[in-house]
Amino acid sequence: MVGIRSEEVARMSQVEIRKADERFRTRTDWLDSRHSFSFGPHYDPRNTHFGLLLVSNDDVVRPGAGFPPHDHQDMEIVTWVLSGALAHEDSAGNAGVIRPGLVQRMTAGAGIRHSEMNASDTEPVRFVQMWVVPDQTGLTPSYEQADVSARLDSDYLVPVASGRPEHRPAVRIHQRDATLYVARLPVGHDVTLPAAPFVHLYVAEGGVYLEASGPLDAGDAARITGSEGHRVTATEPAEILVWEMYSMLRSA
């Protein structure tokens, strides 16, 4: 895949709502995973990505279980934990445990092997893992995590992973055209989505009302092309994940 810059994209705003029960689902004895896009054995040629976002998986892993060591290459992988704790180890010698309020980025680059395991033997862990394509291939593999919890008790979108240096202390992703924001909203509070060529809104928890589109529940998503800065209002305590993107992917 190669990128198309925003100036090549039509500027007419369009909102596509994807309901929670429309997602692909993988269920095993230790994993319940819901996929926003084609993933693994689940394939739909009409639903392979949006903007630069290739993967958005909402995973629940049972206590003491997880993903054993496996390989990745040329991908920026961002993980956001909603409940529980997730332990990471990789072949570059990095290790860490992430919990709600901590964001993790792994640059797979030229190639890395890692595992992701539930850090608890008694409680499940739920997390959303998202993949975007980097600006360049063959990067040196790297890892970063940051505690952004103190910034989440506010009525604005908090940048937690970004390719833009002005968004520090967000973790850095190697994709200048993408930023992930998170907001935790009490009932009645609202935020304004970025005005950008591509915006992906995912309701991780709770419920919201999306301006000009209607209510969205937990697990629902909105794919907005030519975003004009729609307002999102919490109808119940909510946590939302928002990708702002300035280019898209197409088949090479």
Score class of each variant (00 low, 15 high):
A218K: 09
S91P: 05
R113P: 06
P41T: 05
L249Q: 00
H167L: 00
R105Y: 05
G64I: 07
S154L: 05
H230R: 12
G219D: 04
A238M: 01
R231S: 05
E123D: 14
S142M: 00
G3I: 10
P124Q: 01
I17C: 13
A195W: 08
Q14P: 05
A10G: 14
D29E: 14
V2A: 15
D44H: 08
E123Y: 05
S162T: 05
D74A: 07
I112S: 04
P124S: 11
V148D: 07
A238D: 00
A108P: 02
A119C: 06
T26S: 06
S247M: 10
G84D: 02
A196E: 02
G93V: 09
G3M: 12
A146H: 11
V55N: 06
A110W: 13
V132M: 06
N57K: 08
E89I: 07
P215H: 07
L86D: 03
M245Y: 10
A178M: 11
G214Y: 08
L102P: 04
A20E: 08
S6C: 10
N47Y: 09
P197E: 12
I173L: 13
S247K: 11
M75L: 07
P186E: 14
R18H: 04
S213P: 04
R99I: 14
F50H: 03
K19V: 09
A238P: 03
L210H: 02
S120L: 10
P169H: 00
M75E: 06
H230E: 06
R18A: 02
M106H: 01
D58K: 03
V132H: 08
L31C: 14
A218N: 04
A20Y: 03
S6V: 11
S13F: 08
V97S: 08
R46A: 15
G138H: 07
E116Q: 15
L180P: 01
R151T: 08
V125N: 03
V160F: 01
T225N: 11
A20P: 05
S213G: 02
T79L: 06
L185E: 11
E16K: 15
A252Y: 12
R18P: 03
V133P: 03
P194D: 05
P215C: 10
T48K: 11
V55R: 00
V148K: 07
R99N: 04
I240N: 00
E22G: 07
R34P: 02
T122M: 12
G109R: 09
R46N: 15
P165W: 08
D121W: 13
A150Y: 13
R99C: 08
V191N: 09
W243N: 09
E211S: 08
A183I: 14
G109M: 06
W131Y: 06
E7R: 13
G111N: 03
R184V: 07
M245P: 12
V158S: 02
M1N: 01
D190N: 09
A195N: 10
R231T: 13
G229Y: 10
T140M: 07
A161L: 04
G84C: 04
R126K: 03
